[in-house]
Design a protein around this nucleic acid. Structure first.
Length: 465
RNA sequence: UCCGGCAUAGCUCAGUGGUAGAGUAGGUGGCUGUUAACCACUUGGUCGCUGGUUCGAGCCCAGCUGCCGGAGCCA
Protein backbone atom coordinates (compact mmCIF):
# COMPACT_ATOMS: atom_id res chain seq x y z
CA UNK A 1 0.00 0.00 0.00
CA UNK A 2 1.26 3.42 -0.88
CA UNK A 3 0.51 5.66 2.04
CA UNK A 4 1.31 9.17 3.10
CA UNK A 5 2.96 9.52 6.49
CA UNK A 6 1.18 11.74 9.00
CA UNK A 7 4.38 13.77 9.19
CA UNK A 8 4.22 14.38 5.44
CA UNK A 9 0.50 15.10 5.43
CA UNK A 10 0.81 17.71 8.17
CA UNK A 11 3.54 19.51 6.22
CA UNK A 12 1.65 19.40 2.93
CA UNK A 13 -0.30 22.40 1.63
CA UNK A 14 -1.53 20.94 -1.66
CA UNK A 15 -5.18 21.22 -0.69
CA UNK A 16 -7.45 18.84 -2.55
CA UNK A 17 -4.72 16.24 -2.95
CA UNK A 18 -5.95 12.68 -2.48
CA UNK A 19 -4.04 10.77 0.16
CA UNK A 20 -4.10 7.44 1.95
CA UNK A 21 -3.07 7.45 5.59
CA UNK A 22 -3.00 4.64 8.12
CA UNK A 23 -2.35 4.39 11.81
CA UNK A 24 -3.90 4.11 15.23
CA UNK A 25 -6.78 6.13 16.62
CA UNK A 26 -5.87 8.35 19.54
CA UNK A 27 -9.35 9.69 20.13
CA UNK A 28 -12.68 10.23 18.44
CA UNK A 29 -15.10 13.12 18.90
CA UNK A 30 -18.59 12.98 17.43
CA UNK A 31 -20.35 16.03 16.12
CA UNK A 32 -24.06 16.00 15.41
CA UNK A 33 -23.38 18.35 12.51
CA UNK A 34 -22.83 15.29 10.38
CA UNK A 35 -19.36 13.94 11.05
CA UNK A 36 -16.86 12.62 13.58
CA UNK A 37 -13.35 13.80 14.23
CA UNK A 38 -10.64 11.17 14.54
CA UNK A 39 -7.14 11.87 15.80
CA UNK A 40 -4.82 9.57 13.88
CA UNK A 41 -1.23 8.81 14.87
CA UNK A 42 1.13 6.65 12.85
CA UNK A 43 4.36 7.13 14.78
CA UNK A 44 6.01 9.20 12.06
CA UNK A 45 5.86 12.24 14.31
CA UNK A 46 4.48 13.38 17.63
CA UNK A 47 1.46 15.19 16.21
CA UNK A 48 -1.81 13.56 15.19
CA UNK A 49 -3.61 14.06 11.91
CA UNK A 50 -7.26 15.03 12.25
CA UNK A 51 -9.59 12.94 10.13
CA UNK A 52 -13.03 14.24 9.34
CA UNK A 53 -15.33 11.25 8.89
CA UNK A 54 -18.69 12.31 7.38
CA UNK A 55 -21.89 10.60 8.47
CA UNK A 56 -22.56 9.56 4.87
CA UNK A 57 -19.66 7.10 4.89
CA UNK A 58 -21.34 3.72 4.26
CA UNK A 59 -19.77 2.27 7.40
CA UNK A 60 -20.26 5.33 9.62
CA UNK A 61 -22.62 3.65 12.08
CA UNK A 62 -21.05 0.22 11.93
CA UNK A 63 -17.38 1.23 12.08
CA UNK A 64 -16.66 4.91 12.70
CA UNK A 65 -18.88 5.17 15.76
CA UNK A 66 -17.19 2.13 17.25
CA UNK A 67 -13.69 3.54 17.03
CA UNK A 68 -11.91 3.91 20.33
CA UNK A 69 -8.32 4.79 21.24
CA UNK A 70 -5.99 2.11 19.90
CA UNK A 71 -8.05 1.02 16.92
CA UNK A 72 -6.14 0.67 13.65
CA UNK A 73 -7.53 2.19 10.48
CA UNK A 74 -6.77 3.23 6.94
CA UNK A 75 -8.28 6.38 5.53
CA UNK A 76 -8.53 7.62 1.98
CA UNK A 77 -9.58 11.17 1.37
CA UNK A 78 -8.69 14.68 0.38
CA UNK A 79 -6.18 16.77 2.22
CA UNK A 80 -8.03 20.01 3.01
CA UNK A 81 -7.50 23.20 4.96
CA UNK A 82 -9.05 22.78 8.40
CA UNK A 83 -12.01 24.94 9.31
CA UNK A 84 -11.28 24.56 12.98
CA UNK A 85 -8.54 26.03 15.09
CA UNK A 86 -5.66 23.89 16.28
CA UNK A 87 -4.52 22.38 12.99
CA UNK A 88 -3.80 23.72 9.53
CA UNK A 89 -4.75 20.64 7.57
CA UNK A 90 -6.97 17.64 7.96
CA UNK A 91 -8.16 14.76 5.82
CA UNK A 92 -11.77 14.57 4.76
CA UNK A 93 -12.40 10.85 4.49
CA UNK A 94 -14.04 9.33 1.42
CA UNK A 95 -13.44 5.82 2.73
CA UNK A 96 -12.36 4.40 6.06
CA UNK A 97 -11.26 0.83 6.63
CA UNK A 98 -10.91 -0.64 10.09
CA UNK A 99 -8.05 -3.12 10.46
CA UNK A 100 -8.75 -3.83 14.09
CA UNK A 101 -11.09 -2.47 16.74
CA UNK A 102 -9.90 -1.80 20.26
CA UNK A 103 -12.05 -2.59 23.27
CA UNK A 104 -11.86 0.40 25.62
CA UNK A 105 -12.73 -1.82 28.57
CA UNK A 106 -9.65 -3.95 27.97
CA UNK A 107 -7.19 -1.49 26.43
CA UNK A 108 -4.81 -0.09 29.06
CA UNK A 109 -4.22 3.22 27.26
CA UNK A 110 -6.92 5.83 27.24
CA UNK A 111 -7.04 9.51 26.66
CA UNK A 112 -5.97 10.49 30.15
CA UNK A 113 -2.42 10.76 31.40
CA UNK A 114 -0.82 7.54 32.58
CA UNK A 115 2.17 7.33 34.91
CA UNK A 116 5.48 6.02 33.57
CA UNK A 117 5.40 3.39 36.31
CA UNK A 118 2.08 2.07 35.08
CA UNK A 119 3.29 2.12 31.47
CA UNK A 120 6.24 -0.12 32.38
CA UNK A 121 3.68 -2.82 33.14
CA UNK A 122 2.34 -2.53 29.58
CA UNK A 123 5.64 -1.92 27.84
CA UNK A 124 4.40 -3.66 24.70
CA UNK A 125 1.85 -0.88 24.24
CA UNK A 126 3.62 2.14 25.70
CA UNK A 127 5.27 2.77 22.34
CA UNK A 128 1.86 4.09 21.28
CA UNK A 129 2.01 6.99 23.72
CA UNK A 130 3.32 10.44 22.96
CA UNK A 131 6.18 10.10 25.43
CA UNK A 132 7.48 6.76 24.25
CA UNK A 133 7.03 7.54 20.58
CA UNK A 134 9.14 10.65 21.15
CA UNK A 135 11.75 8.69 23.10
CA UNK A 136 11.97 6.15 20.29
CA UNK A 137 12.49 8.83 17.66
CA UNK A 138 15.13 10.67 19.70
CA UNK A 139 16.87 7.39 20.45
CA UNK A 140 16.91 6.57 16.75
CA UNK A 141 18.45 9.92 15.91
CA UNK A 142 21.12 9.50 18.57
CA UNK A 143 21.99 6.05 17.25
CA UNK A 144 22.16 7.13 13.63
CA UNK A 145 24.18 10.23 14.47
CA UNK A 146 26.57 8.13 16.51
CA UNK A 147 27.44 6.21 13.37
CA UNK A 148 27.62 9.37 11.29
CA UNK A 149 29.93 11.08 13.79
CA UNK A 150 32.45 8.25 13.93
CA UNK A 151 32.21 7.37 10.26
CA UNK A 152 32.91 10.99 9.33
CA UNK A 153 36.10 10.81 11.39
CA UNK A 154 37.38 7.60 9.85
CA UNK A 155 36.38 5.28 12.69
CA UNK A 156 35.42 1.76 11.66
CA UNK A 157 32.35 0.12 13.18
CA UNK A 158 33.67 -2.82 15.14
CA UNK A 159 31.46 -5.69 16.34
CA UNK A 160 32.78 -6.85 19.67
CA UNK A 161 31.87 -10.37 20.77
CA UNK A 162 28.80 -10.68 22.97
CA UNK A 163 29.99 -13.90 24.59
CA UNK A 164 33.39 -13.76 26.21
CA UNK A 165 35.11 -16.90 27.44
CA UNK A 166 37.96 -15.28 29.23
CA UNK A 167 38.78 -16.88 32.57
CA UNK A 168 39.63 -13.61 34.16
CA UNK A 169 36.75 -11.40 35.00
CA UNK A 170 37.85 -7.91 35.76
CA UNK A 171 35.27 -5.72 37.42
CA UNK A 172 31.52 -6.11 37.54
CA UNK A 173 29.28 -9.11 38.05
CA UNK A 174 28.73 -11.08 34.83
CA UNK A 175 25.93 -13.19 33.47
CA UNK A 176 27.12 -16.72 32.90
CA UNK A 177 26.40 -18.39 29.59
CA UNK A 178 26.07 -22.16 29.77
CA UNK A 179 24.41 -25.12 28.11
CA UNK A 180 25.02 -27.33 31.14
CA UNK A 181 21.94 -28.91 32.69
CA UNK A 182 21.57 -26.92 35.88
CA UNK A 183 19.59 -29.78 37.45
CA UNK A 184 22.50 -32.10 36.86
CA UNK A 185 25.78 -30.23 36.68
CA UNK A 186 28.82 -32.35 35.74
CA UNK A 187 31.41 -32.35 38.51
CA UNK A 188 35.12 -33.13 38.45
CA UNK A 189 35.54 -36.41 40.33
CA UNK A 190 38.73 -35.33 42.08
CA UNK A 191 37.98 -31.74 43.07
CA UNK A 192 34.19 -31.90 43.23
CA UNK A 193 34.02 -28.61 41.31
CA UNK A 194 31.96 -27.95 38.19
CA UNK A 195 33.57 -29.58 35.16
CA UNK A 196 33.44 -26.80 32.61
CA UNK A 197 35.23 -28.92 30.03
CA UNK A 198 31.77 -30.40 29.44
CA UNK A 199 30.26 -26.98 28.83
CA UNK A 200 29.66 -25.57 25.35
CA UNK A 201 32.92 -23.64 25.11
CA UNK A 202 34.88 -26.06 27.27
CA UNK A 203 35.36 -23.30 29.81
CA UNK A 204 33.23 -20.79 31.73
CA UNK A 205 31.70 -18.15 29.48
CA UNK A 206 29.88 -14.92 30.14
CA UNK A 207 28.02 -12.11 28.43
CA UNK A 208 30.26 -9.15 27.73
CA UNK A 209 30.57 -6.31 30.21
CA UNK A 210 32.62 -4.28 27.74
CA UNK A 211 34.05 -4.66 24.26
CA UNK A 212 37.02 -2.48 25.07
CA UNK A 213 39.79 -5.06 25.24
CA UNK A 214 38.78 -6.55 21.91
CA UNK A 215 38.29 -3.10 20.39
CA UNK A 216 41.87 -2.25 21.34
CA UNK A 217 43.12 -5.09 19.17
CA UNK A 218 41.43 -3.58 16.12
CA UNK A 219 42.36 0.00 17.00
CA UNK A 220 45.96 -1.20 17.01
CA UNK A 221 45.55 -2.26 13.38
CA UNK A 222 42.86 -0.11 11.76
CA UNK A 223 43.72 3.01 13.73
CA UNK A 224 40.27 4.03 14.91
CA UNK A 225 37.27 1.86 15.70
CA UNK A 226 34.08 2.08 17.73
CA UNK A 227 31.68 -0.45 19.12
CA UNK A 228 27.95 0.07 19.50
CA UNK A 229 26.24 -2.92 21.01
CA UNK A 230 24.54 -4.44 24.01
CA UNK A 231 26.38 -4.79 27.28
CA UNK A 232 25.42 -6.86 30.30
CA UNK A 233 26.04 -6.30 33.98
CA UNK A 234 24.62 -8.66 36.58
CA UNK A 235 24.88 -6.12 39.39
CA UNK A 236 21.93 -5.96 41.75
CA UNK A 237 21.48 -2.31 40.90
CA UNK A 238 18.17 -0.65 41.48
CA UNK A 239 18.50 2.93 40.41
CA UNK A 240 17.22 5.35 37.79
CA UNK A 241 20.52 5.11 35.90
CA UNK A 242 21.38 1.39 35.80
CA UNK A 243 20.21 -1.46 33.61
CA UNK A 244 21.30 -5.09 33.50
CA UNK A 245 21.23 -4.88 29.69
CA UNK A 246 22.20 -1.61 28.09
CA UNK A 247 23.83 -0.26 24.97
CA UNK A 248 27.29 1.17 25.02
CA UNK A 249 29.38 3.03 22.50
CA UNK A 250 33.11 2.48 22.88
CA UNK A 251 35.48 4.31 20.54
CA UNK A 252 39.08 3.20 20.67
CA UNK A 253 41.80 4.97 18.70
CA UNK A 254 45.52 4.70 18.22
CA UNK A 255 48.19 7.41 18.41
CA UNK A 256 46.07 9.26 20.95
CA UNK A 257 46.53 10.46 24.51
CA UNK A 258 44.10 11.47 27.24
CA UNK A 259 43.60 14.98 25.84
CA UNK A 260 42.70 13.53 22.45
CA UNK A 261 40.29 11.23 24.25
CA UNK A 262 38.61 14.13 26.05
CA UNK A 263 38.45 16.12 22.81
CA UNK A 264 36.72 13.23 21.07
CA UNK A 265 34.25 12.75 23.90
CA UNK A 266 33.38 16.41 23.92
CA UNK A 267 32.97 16.65 20.14
CA UNK A 268 30.83 13.52 20.16
CA UNK A 269 28.48 14.71 22.88
CA UNK A 270 28.14 18.10 21.23
CA UNK A 271 27.40 16.48 17.90
CA UNK A 272 24.62 14.39 19.43
CA UNK A 273 23.07 17.37 21.16
CA UNK A 274 23.15 19.48 18.00
CA UNK A 275 21.66 16.62 16.02
CA UNK A 276 18.63 16.10 18.23
CA UNK A 277 18.03 19.85 18.43
CA UNK A 278 18.06 19.99 14.65
CA UNK A 279 16.20 16.77 13.84
CA UNK A 280 13.75 16.30 16.72
CA UNK A 281 12.44 19.79 17.53
CA UNK A 282 8.83 18.70 18.09
CA UNK A 283 9.75 15.77 20.31
CA UNK A 284 12.15 17.94 22.33
CA UNK A 285 9.50 20.62 22.74
CA UNK A 286 7.16 17.95 24.07
CA UNK A 287 9.78 16.85 26.61
CA UNK A 288 10.46 20.46 27.49
CA UNK A 289 6.76 21.15 28.12
CA UNK A 290 5.71 17.90 29.73
CA UNK A 291 8.74 16.14 31.20
CA UNK A 292 11.54 18.53 32.12
CA UNK A 293 11.13 22.27 32.13
CA UNK A 294 14.23 24.01 30.80
CA UNK A 295 15.42 21.04 28.75
CA UNK A 296 15.59 23.00 25.49
CA UNK A 297 17.54 25.83 27.09
CA UNK A 298 20.02 23.40 28.58
CA UNK A 299 20.58 21.53 25.34
CA UNK A 300 20.80 24.70 23.30
CA UNK A 301 23.37 26.15 25.67
CA UNK A 302 25.48 22.99 25.46
CA UNK A 303 25.39 22.85 21.68
CA UNK A 304 28.11 25.48 21.53
CA UNK A 305 29.67 25.50 25.00
CA UNK A 306 32.98 23.83 25.72
CA UNK A 307 33.13 21.50 28.67
CA UNK A 308 34.93 22.28 31.91
CA UNK A 309 38.05 20.18 32.38
CA UNK A 310 39.63 19.74 35.78
CA UNK A 311 41.99 17.26 37.33
CA UNK A 312 40.81 14.90 40.03
CA UNK A 313 43.18 16.69 42.39
CA UNK A 314 41.57 20.05 41.59
CA UNK A 315 38.10 18.52 41.98
CA UNK A 316 38.98 17.26 45.45
CA UNK A 317 40.26 20.71 46.43
CA UNK A 318 36.98 22.28 45.30
CA UNK A 319 34.93 19.66 47.13
CA UNK A 320 36.96 19.95 50.31
CA UNK A 321 36.09 23.64 50.34
CA UNK A 322 32.40 22.82 50.65
CA UNK A 323 32.73 19.56 52.57
CA UNK A 324 29.91 20.59 54.94
CA UNK A 325 27.27 19.96 52.35
CA UNK A 326 28.26 16.33 51.79
CA UNK A 327 27.35 13.19 53.65
CA UNK A 328 30.66 11.64 52.57
CA UNK A 329 33.67 13.85 53.16
CA UNK A 330 35.90 14.13 50.10
CA UNK A 331 39.65 13.71 50.37
CA UNK A 332 42.44 12.81 47.95
CA UNK A 333 42.43 9.09 47.25
CA UNK A 334 38.75 8.24 47.43
CA UNK A 335 36.45 7.99 44.46
CA UNK A 336 33.94 10.75 43.89
CA UNK A 337 30.50 10.04 45.33
CA UNK A 338 27.31 10.77 43.42
CA UNK A 339 26.73 13.82 45.57
CA UNK A 340 30.20 15.11 44.71
CA UNK A 341 29.70 14.60 40.99
CA UNK A 342 26.33 16.29 41.12
CA UNK A 343 27.79 19.26 42.95
CA UNK A 344 30.47 19.71 40.30
CA UNK A 345 28.13 19.39 37.31
CA UNK A 346 24.97 20.97 38.71
CA UNK A 347 26.13 23.59 41.21
CA UNK A 348 29.76 24.56 40.71
CA UNK A 349 30.08 24.48 36.90
CA UNK A 350 26.41 24.06 35.91
CA UNK A 351 27.29 22.04 32.84
CA UNK A 352 29.34 19.09 31.66
CA UNK A 353 32.58 18.51 33.53
CA UNK A 354 35.47 16.28 32.53
CA UNK A 355 37.44 15.09 35.54
CA UNK A 356 40.89 13.75 34.61
CA UNK A 357 43.81 11.87 36.15
CA UNK A 358 42.43 9.86 39.04
CA UNK A 359 44.44 8.05 41.73
CA UNK A 360 45.71 4.73 40.39
CA UNK A 361 44.24 2.77 43.29
CA UNK A 362 40.63 3.49 42.39
CA UNK A 363 40.90 2.85 38.66
CA UNK A 364 41.36 -0.16 36.37
CA UNK A 365 44.70 -1.79 35.60
CA UNK A 366 44.66 -0.96 31.89
CA UNK A 367 44.72 2.81 32.41
CA UNK A 368 48.07 4.41 31.64
CA UNK A 369 50.18 5.21 34.68
CA UNK A 370 51.15 8.88 34.76
CA UNK A 371 54.71 10.07 35.38
CA UNK A 372 53.84 10.98 38.97
CA UNK A 373 53.26 7.24 39.57
CA UNK A 374 50.28 8.22 41.70
CA UNK A 375 47.62 8.87 39.09
CA UNK A 376 46.43 7.26 35.87
CA UNK A 377 45.34 8.89 32.61
CA UNK A 378 41.62 8.35 33.23
CA UNK A 379 38.69 10.63 32.64
CA UNK A 380 35.03 10.74 33.58
CA UNK A 381 32.52 13.00 31.85
CA UNK A 382 29.80 14.20 34.23
CA UNK A 383 26.50 15.62 33.06
CA UNK A 384 23.96 17.56 35.13
CA UNK A 385 21.03 15.36 36.26
CA UNK A 386 22.53 12.24 34.73
CA UNK A 387 25.92 12.02 36.44
CA UNK A 388 28.66 9.92 34.92
CA UNK A 389 27.95 9.35 31.25
CA UNK A 390 31.43 8.56 29.97
CA UNK A 391 34.34 6.74 31.51
CA UNK A 392 37.55 6.54 29.54
CA UNK A 393 41.31 6.54 29.60
CA UNK A 394 44.55 6.44 27.75
CA UNK A 395 45.56 2.78 27.80
CA UNK A 396 48.76 1.50 29.33
CA UNK A 397 50.98 0.84 26.32
CA UNK A 398 54.18 -0.25 28.12
CA UNK A 399 54.34 -4.00 28.52
CA UNK A 400 56.33 -4.05 31.76
CA UNK A 401 54.08 -1.49 33.42
CA UNK A 402 50.93 -3.26 32.26
CA UNK A 403 52.07 -6.62 33.58
CA UNK A 404 52.98 -5.02 36.90
CA UNK A 405 49.58 -3.36 37.13
CA UNK A 406 47.79 -6.63 36.33
CA UNK A 407 49.65 -8.36 39.16
CA UNK A 408 48.94 -5.47 41.52
CA UNK A 409 45.26 -5.99 40.77
CA UNK A 410 45.58 -9.60 41.96
CA UNK A 411 45.39 -11.11 38.49
CA UNK A 412 47.70 -13.09 36.25
CA UNK A 413 49.21 -11.45 33.12
CA UNK A 414 49.10 -14.83 31.38
CA UNK A 415 45.31 -14.70 31.46
CA UNK A 416 45.63 -11.49 29.41
CA UNK A 417 48.20 -12.90 27.03
CA UNK A 418 46.59 -11.61 23.87
CA UNK A 419 45.96 -8.21 25.42
CA UNK A 420 49.61 -8.00 26.45
CA UNK A 421 50.68 -9.06 22.93
CA UNK A 422 49.46 -5.70 21.66
CA UNK A 423 52.23 -4.13 23.77
CA UNK A 424 54.73 -6.80 22.81
CA UNK A 425 54.38 -6.36 19.07
CA UNK A 426 54.52 -2.80 17.85
CA UNK A 427 52.85 -1.06 20.75
CA UNK A 428 51.33 2.39 20.24
CA UNK A 429 49.78 4.97 22.52
CA UNK A 430 46.00 4.70 22.31
CA UNK A 431 42.90 5.75 24.16
CA UNK A 432 39.17 5.26 24.27
CA UNK A 433 36.04 5.61 26.33
CA UNK A 434 32.64 4.07 26.96
CA UNK A 435 29.41 6.01 26.72
CA UNK A 436 26.20 4.69 28.22
CA UNK A 437 23.73 5.14 25.38
CA UNK A 438 20.61 5.13 27.55
CA UNK A 439 22.14 7.75 29.83
CA UNK A 440 22.57 9.96 26.79
CA UNK A 441 18.98 9.34 25.73
CA UNK A 442 17.94 10.28 29.25
CA UNK A 443 19.93 13.48 29.10
CA UNK A 444 18.49 14.51 25.74
CA UNK A 445 14.89 13.75 26.65
CA UNK A 446 14.84 14.73 30.31
CA UNK A 447 13.26 11.38 31.14
CA UNK A 448 13.87 10.71 34.82
CA UNK A 449 14.27 6.94 34.74
CA UNK A 450 16.60 4.96 32.49
CA UNK A 451 13.97 2.20 32.32
CA UNK A 452 11.90 4.56 30.20
CA UNK A 453 14.45 5.25 27.47
CA UNK A 454 15.00 1.63 26.40
CA UNK A 455 12.14 -0.36 24.85
CA UNK A 456 12.28 -3.32 27.23
CA UNK A 457 14.33 -2.64 30.35
CA UNK A 458 16.05 -5.52 32.10
CA UNK A 459 16.57 -4.96 35.80
CA UNK A 460 16.78 -7.28 38.81
CA UNK A 461 13.58 -9.34 39.09
CA UNK A 462 12.26 -7.85 35.89
CA UNK A 463 12.52 -9.33 32.38
CA UNK A 464 8.91 -9.41 31.21
CA UNK A 465 8.31 -8.96 27.49
C1' U B 1 22.58 -5.46 48.73
C1' C B 2 21.41 -1.27 52.41
C1' C B 3 17.97 2.92 53.89
C1' G B 4 13.11 5.15 53.25
C1' G B 5 8.19 5.20 51.09
C1' C B 6 3.97 2.97 48.70
C1' A B 7 0.17 -1.20 47.53
C1' U B 8 -8.09 0.70 48.00
C1' A B 9 -12.80 0.62 41.30
C1' G B 10 -9.80 -0.52 34.49
C1' C B 11 -6.61 4.12 35.73
C1' U B 12 -5.24 8.36 39.43
C1' C B 13 -6.15 8.79 44.42
C1' A B 14 -9.11 10.13 49.33
C1' G B 15 -10.56 7.27 53.46
C1' U B 16 -6.32 6.56 61.21
C1' G B 17 -10.94 1.07 64.60
C1' G B 18 -17.86 0.92 63.59
C1' U B 19 -22.39 -0.57 56.64
C1' A B 20 -16.27 1.40 50.85
C1' G B 21 -15.79 7.27 48.39
C1' A B 22 -14.27 11.01 44.47
C1' G B 23 -12.25 12.13 39.74
C1' U B 24 -11.44 9.75 35.28
C1' A B 25 -12.31 5.79 31.84
C1' G B 26 -16.76 2.61 30.18
C1' G B 27 -22.44 2.73 29.18
C1' U B 28 -27.16 5.71 28.14
C1' G B 29 -29.33 10.43 26.88
C1' G B 30 -28.56 15.70 25.50
C1' C B 31 -25.54 19.47 23.02
C1' U B 32 -21.66 20.98 19.79
C1' G B 33 -16.33 22.39 13.37
C1' U B 34 -14.81 19.34 17.69
C1' U B 35 -9.68 19.21 19.65
C1' A B 36 -7.75 16.55 27.60
C1' A B 37 -14.79 18.63 24.25
C1' C B 38 -19.03 19.83 27.50
C1' C B 39 -23.85 18.69 30.64
C1' A B 40 -27.07 14.90 33.16
C1' C B 41 -27.79 9.95 34.72
C1' U B 42 -25.34 5.21 35.39
C1' U B 43 -22.29 0.24 35.62
C1' G B 44 -18.05 -0.90 38.40
C1' G B 45 -14.39 -3.23 44.93
C1' U B 46 -11.67 -10.88 47.77
C1' C B 47 -9.09 -2.67 50.13
C1' G B 48 -1.36 -6.88 47.40
C1' C B 49 -0.73 -11.97 50.07
C1' U B 50 -0.43 -14.73 54.86
C1' G B 51 -1.03 -14.62 59.89
C1' G B 52 -2.02 -11.85 64.50
C1' U B 53 -4.52 -8.09 68.02
C1' U B 54 -9.84 -6.70 68.67
C1' C B 55 -16.80 -7.61 69.90
C1' G B 56 -15.34 -5.46 65.16
C1' A B 57 -9.46 -4.20 60.72
C1' G B 58 -8.94 -0.75 54.36
C1' C B 59 -7.09 1.49 59.03
C1' C B 60 -3.13 -1.39 64.43
C1' C B 61 1.11 -5.40 64.62
C1' A B 62 4.45 -9.22 62.19
C1' G B 63 6.17 -11.76 57.94
C1' C B 64 6.16 -12.16 52.64
C1' U B 65 5.74 -10.29 47.56
C1' G B 66 5.90 -6.38 44.15
C1' C B 67 6.74 -1.34 42.86
C1' C B 68 8.94 3.64 43.60
C1' G B 69 12.88 6.94 45.41
C1' G B 70 17.92 7.45 47.53
C1' A B 71 22.87 4.96 48.34
C1' G B 72 26.60 1.46 46.60
C1' C B 73 28.43 -0.81 41.93
C1' C B 74 29.13 1.63 37.19
C1' A B 75 27.95 3.45 31.55
Amino acid sequence: MKRTLVREALACREFGKLVTVAGWVRTRRDSKAGFSFIELNDGSCLANLQILAPVDLPNYATDVQKLHPGASIRVEGALVASEGAGQAVEVKATSLKVYGFCDPLEYPLGKSRISFERLREVAHLRSRTNSFGAVARVRNTLAFETHRFFQDRGFYYFNAPIITASDCEGAGEMFQVTTLDLENVPKDKLTGKVDFSKDFFGRPANLTVSGQLEAETYACALGSVYTFGPTFRAENSNTTRHLAEFWMIEPEFAFADLDDDADLAEDYLRHLIRSVLEQCPDDLKFFNDRVEKGLLDNLTRLADASFTRISYTEAIKILEGVADRFEFKPYWGVDLQSEHERYLAEVKFQGPVIVMNYPREIKAFYMRLNDDEKTVAAMDVLLPNVGEIIGGSQREDRLDVLERRIRESGMNPEDYWWYCDLRRFGTVPHAGFGLGFERMVRFCTGMGNIRDVIPYPRTPQSAEF
